[in-house]
Amino acid sequence: MEEAVVVAGKAIGAGLAMVGALGGGIGIGLAVGGAVQGMARNPDHTGTIQTNMILGVAFAEAVAIYALVVSLIILFVLS
């Protein structure tokens, strides 16, 4: 019984930790959407826009990946 409670707690905690992926998803969507608009209006600057977009996407994604790491640690490292 006690074990079952621990497992349930881990599962709920890992699931709640992944709520953080929401912000990363919204951020990446906004960044890429803006970059595509910029590239469509200004195809000559595609290279510069793409570089900055990847940089911004990497930062936004990092936050989501922190959430992922927290939930992976909860699931597989916490005992």
Binding site: A58, E61, A62, I65, Y66, L68, V69, L72
Partner: peptide, 16 residues
Amino acid sequence: LSFAFRLLGSMFAGSI
């Protein structure tokens, strides 16, 4: 931290 956990997180999640 951000360099280390970005790579670790995405690759470990990919393996799983």
